[in-house]
Design a binder for these strands. Structure first.
Lengths: 135, 135
DNA sequence: CTTGAGTCTGTAGTGGCTACAGACGGTACA
DNA sequence: TGTACCGTCTGTAGCCACTACAGACTCAAG
């Protein structure tokens, strides 16, 4: 399988595949006579795993850890659970941060009376919350 | 006001203040005899605005646009409203992306039977969804 | 035999900072 | 007066996870 086929089979950019190889996430495949990368099923499986984990928001470091764990089938699953759970809390934290942003943005936008910038409530709300001379 | 005071008054890193100056977001201030940056109230206000907008998730480019708008008080507020509204939809999109991730992560983690990696449902769920030989 | 698509390596850019290194300024205390 | 120490200065490099080239090649179709 050539890199373009692998890439399209996994909905990945060709450049990204090469990047994963460079950072050691995907093993370097054999080469054809013309020096083209030649991938097998194992590569396809591994890249699919990586993509799916990335889609779920795992960092490349986390993916690396997960991949390392899959190599030893005897290890307890706990380490995997831990990585996933840590990531879940991270995602939940991001959601609540964004939800707070969203609520505040709605208030800000809701105040807009569509006049001029001079009496724009959005600008005003964004504007300086200056503490009176902390010095 | 020295850079450290400005920074702590706005909960910003000193490096970030200098970075904002470098990219033209914050005007270069006067210097003292010893070549220290010397800020006035206008800088404090501008940086407060920037920080608040950043806290609400606006990109530096959006902040730049907002700042440009605040300079002409006669302009209609519509442009401001547009930037903010566009940003709000962006935030809402991110929230729903993350919520989808969260839901899927919960399913994945919920499947964990705490055995060994060999029969780990997390790894399995993450694992290759290989379409049978697309060639 | 040419054309065009795919692939190769290597480097640089993105956003928004953050982290140094190495030199200089300013102040508090001995 | 020395000295210790903090803050500040400039400039450069690093972070994440790619993405976008440039310039050279391989290969299959017409």
């Amino acid at each position: 399988m050539k890199i373009g086929e692998l890439a399209s089979a996994t909905a990945t950019n060709v450049e990204t595949v090469r990047y994963y190889e460079k950072i050691g996430l995907l093993p370097a495949p054999a080469r054809t006579n013309g020096n083209y990368r030649s991938y097998g099923v194992a590569h396809l499986q591994r890249l699919s795993f990586i993509r799916r984990a990335r889609d779920l928001g795992f960092s490349l470091d986390a993916v690396r850890d997960l991949l390392a764990l899959t190599d030893d089938r005897e290890k307890p699953c706990q380490a995997v659970d831990e990585i996933a759970s840590r990531h879940l809390s991270e995602v939940e934290r991001k959601i609540s941060d964004l939800a707070a942003m969203r609520d505040e943005l709605r208030v800000v936008i809701g105040n807009c009376r569509h006049g001029t910038v001079g009496d724009c409530k959005i600008i005003e709300t964004l504007g300086p919350r200056v503490r009176p001379d902390p010095k």
